[in-house]
């Protein structure tokens, strides 16, 4: 019984891992045509730079 339970948990975990591996990259920020650096939220800008390898 325990073995069956453990195996089920492992199978579910493995399926979840496979599902997670296929996830798409995060949504990019919606930069409007007339967007300026000054009016862009800093946290969002930082996240944008992080995704592209421009900051930590």
């Amino acid at each position: 019984m325990r073995a069956a339970l453990a195996a089920s948990v492992l199978l579910v975990a493995a399926s979840a891992a496979g599902w997670w591996l296929t996830r798409p990259p995060p949504e990019p920020p919606k930069v409007a045509e007339d967007q300026t650096f000054e009016d862009m939220d800093r946290a969002e800008y930082e996240a944008w730079m992080q995704e592209l390898g421009y900051t930590d």
Binding site: A7, L11, A14, A17, G18, L21, T22
Partner: peptide, 15 residues
Amino acid sequence: MLLWLAVLLGMRFGA
């Protein structure tokens, strides 16, 4: 073997 199948199945549904 079964684990790999589970991962592939997960990827299929994930995709």
